[in-house]
Simulated assay, not measured.
Amino acid sequence: MSQTVDRALSILPLLAQGPADLGQVADRLGVHKSTALRLLRTLHEHGLVYRQQDQRYRLGARLFALAQEAVENLDVREIAHPHLAALNDRTGHTVHLAVHEDGEVLYIDKVESRYPVRMYSRIGKPVALTVAAVAKLLLADLPEPERRALAVKLDYPRYTPRSTPDAAAFLQELATVREQGWATDLGGHEESINCVAAPIRGADGRVVAAMSVSAPNVVVTAEELLALLPQVRRTAEAISHDYSGTTPPKETEVSVDE
């Protein structure tokens, strides 16, 4: 990267902390005021910074518009799919991707198991909100007032003896999911199906989607599926970094007890 571009881009995080005058910008960059002024004028011409009446500079509206446009055009399914396929290739189990839209949690991608026993789920199909692992992750990320309002409105079907029985139990489970950063459905929807899930986060840390690995008991036990949780979490973190455009940290082992 050229020195001029590097210096110009260094101005943006400085102004993100609040308005700054020419001298402050020059001092931070370690350049003469004339150089700082030339950089600021170029950024101003493109709407990326704005000069206030008090002669201080702040971030420009064009920068926010570009950021919003970029977010709106991100396709989490397109970004996630290669990672989902790779996880499916390593484990052989069904991998799902889901989002929260208009009060429903919907599957938006699915990579089928390599085993003869297949799950009855399809892209576009809503999931069972009170038991599905992906739903727990997406709903756990809601602000507490929204979580409580939603919990009292929901019905709690007894799909199996392990289904969530009522609003109080659901809220407690969401609190646990929020704290630990992952979720399970161990026979809550179908007694023979188990699932582990992890969140996909945007640059602001909010959960934008959730991914899961599911398998029937005839293929692997619940304990064997839970042993895959570190892989599931690493995959979700890799998708999160691709989605938010951030550099992933050095790989560390993730344990179920974290």
Rank of each mutant, 00 (worst) to 15 (best):
V25G: 09
D155Q: 13
A128K: 10
A236I: 01
R162A: 15
T94H: 07
T221N: 05
E101W: 11
R118N: 08
V213D: 04
L225F: 10
R162F: 06
P165E: 07
P82K: 08
A169Y: 05
Q68N: 10
D257W: 01
E45M: 05
V134Q: 13
G23F: 09
L225P: 05
V76P: 02
D242H: 10
L228P: 02
K33A: 11
T42V: 10
T4D: 14
D204K: 09
S2T: 09
Y107V: 12
R206P: 04
A16M: 05
E101P: 02
A167S: 11
Y159G: 09
A128L: 09
E146F: 01
R206S: 13
N194R: 15
M119G: 13
Y243R: 11
T164A: 09
S121H: 15
E45R: 14
L229H: 00
H93Y: 14
S34K: 05
K110Q: 14
T221K: 01
D6H: 12
L14R: 11
L63P: 04
H189V: 12
A128R: 10
V256M: 03
Q17T: 12
Y156F: 14
N194F: 06
T42H: 11
I239M: 06
Q52R: 13
A203P: 02
S10E: 13
E258K: 02
A203H: 01
L29P: 08
A65Y: 15
G30H: 07
G18Q: 03
